[in-house]
Design a protein around this nucleic acid. Structure first.
Length: 154
DNA sequence: GCCAACGTTGGC
DNA sequence: GCCAACGTTGGC
């Protein structure tokens, strides 16, 4: 099993929103970056766990965890002309972009903030903390995942 | 809201 | 195939 981190702007789609979805499950659409797409396609398996990260807010933070419940399949918003994720180079016959389905797993009683993560020497190499690292889907090592989970006080 | 860092596009 | 211009991300 592999581990991941999924970024989302909470005003666009938050962990709360995921909790309120039917079956607490939603497709992770709108990924328009090849590296992120390839990680979904080649790496993500049903049962994998991922952190849910809120970006572009006053205090960016990991707010909980989700599980992958469906492996990569075509992102239908890419050929939906009314979607802001529309891509004229993608079609139902020849989809360029993919998505996975994720299900809510847990919400931390206290978010683990980016600031907090930066203060942990063992996480120095973590993708999220590297300069200029903007990938919205990132691999997380098992050690990093367990260490961060151990910080959660519930 | 600013702007540095990054990815993509497209002219040549 | 280079690289300038442009658009986007995301911390601050």
């Amino acid at each position: 099993m592999r581990h991941w981190l999924l970024k989302s702007e909470p005003n666009v789609f938050s962990l709360e929103d995921l909790k309120n979805c039917p079956n607490q499950t939603e497709h992770w659409d709108g990924i328009r970056n090849y590296q992120a797409r390839n990680l979904m396609r080649d790496g993500m398996k049903v049962g994998d766990r991922a952190f849910f990260y809120h970006s572009r807010q006053a205090e960016p933070a990991i707010v909980g965890t989700v599980r992958v419940v469906r492996e990569a399949y075509p992102d239908h918003t890419s050929w939906d002309t009314t979607s802001k994720y529309f891509d004229e180079n993608s079609s139902e016959e020849n989809p360029r972009w993919l998505m996975v389905d994720v299900q809510f797993e847990s919400e931390f009683s206290l978010p683990i903030t980016l600031k907090e993560l930066r203060n942990i020497p063992e996480l120095k190499e973590m993708f999220l903390l590297r300069k200029g690292m903007r990938l919205s889907i990132q691999p997380v090592t098992e050690e990093e995942f367990e260490l961060i989970l151990s910080l959660v006080k519930d």
